[in-house]
Amino acid sequence: MERHEIEAFLTLAEELHFRRTSERLGLAQGRVSQTIKRLERRLGTALFERTSRSVALTPVGRQLRDDLLPVRDQLRRAVDRATAAGRGITGVLRVGYSSPMVAETLLKGGDAFRSRYPDCEVEIHEVQLSDPFGPLRGGRVHLQVSELPVQEPDFTLGPLLRRETRVLMVPAGHPFARRARVSLEDLAQVPLIAVSGDAVPRYWLDHHYPRHTPSGRTVPHAPAVTYWTELPSLIGRGKGVSPACEGAERYYARPDVAWIPFGDAPPVDYGFFWPTAGESARLRAFVETVCGLGGPDLP
């Protein structure tokens, strides 16, 4: 049997409808019918029982379907592997992330990617916000998904992966904790704790940890921390407040910290980016695979 005959037979065996089969295969309905008839003549037996209202497999057809399914899957895997090798989709792809929500999406995408490209391994690594681009520039990761903005001339920005509502983490006993919403102007009333480091760009800090409200009032800043995971305990002890994304509460909720949505702040966006000089077929294939999963993570 030729490959097109296997595909036509197995698709019809699944759909049990000639029109739907022709639409899936992108062929004329008459061509599908002729392919099945030629196959039946060659085998010397009917594979389908046809009436004006229905199509059903014969016992021989059911047996052939069961025997051919693993053959088709093996053929597809062989073609996929050859295609991937030809495109350079082999080896190890190291992907960085800065939040647990993104990690979940990347792990799911990694499973789908390995299924599609079995000769390429995917490793997922956490990147600290205090050194957001060091691992990427140092070659420890090839690709990254982190909080935007990213305005680095040597990086290429890819698609947006996730969008989160921006919230303010406040001590549970603070007056803000009793509100349904806070505003950016409220930041002038309480010390803000930022995540910082020598390698963090000023434009990124100003976006996530502003020093002035929209009206120009000064936002007081408490001493910065190096690791984001230090924030909840400091806030719970009343040392200040800090912006975050709404999805982080699922991972870092604690009774002494309240998560209050902003009514006027932009969302927290997470996007793909990578060194322009390091772009590769496997990198592009991974981004396409993850984005192709769709679902609630994508805006």
Rank of each mutant, 00 (worst) to 15 (best):
T45C: 12
E23R: 03
V32G: 02
Q34S: 13
L27Q: 05
G44R: 06
E14L: 01
T35H: 08
V32C: 04
V32I: 13
A28R: 14
L25R: 05
L27D: 09
L39N: 04
Q34L: 14
E14W: 01
E49R: 13
A46G: 04
R31D: 01
R41F: 01
S22E: 07
T35I: 15
A13N: 05
L47W: 14
A46L: 11
A46P: 06
E15N: 00
R42V: 09
E14Q: 13
R31M: 02
R42G: 09
S33F: 05
E23A: 06
F18G: 02
V32N: 03
R41K: 15
G30L: 05
A13L: 05
E49H: 00
A28V: 08
H17K: 00
L43K: 05
R19K: 10
L47A: 07
T21A: 05
I36Q: 13
L39C: 07
K37D: 15
E15L: 12
E15M: 09
G30N: 13
H17E: 10
G44E: 10
G26M: 10
T45Q: 12
A13Y: 07
G30Q: 13
S22P: 01
R42I: 04
S22Y: 04
L39D: 11
R24A: 02
L25Q: 05
R31H: 14
S33H: 12
R19P: 00
R38Q: 15
R20H: 04
G26Q: 00
F48A: 11
Q29M: 06
A46D: 13
S33N: 11
A28G: 13
G44V: 10
L47K: 08
S33W: 15
V32E: 01
F48Q: 10
I36M: 11
R20K: 01
E23T: 04
T35V: 15
E23K: 01
G44C: 02
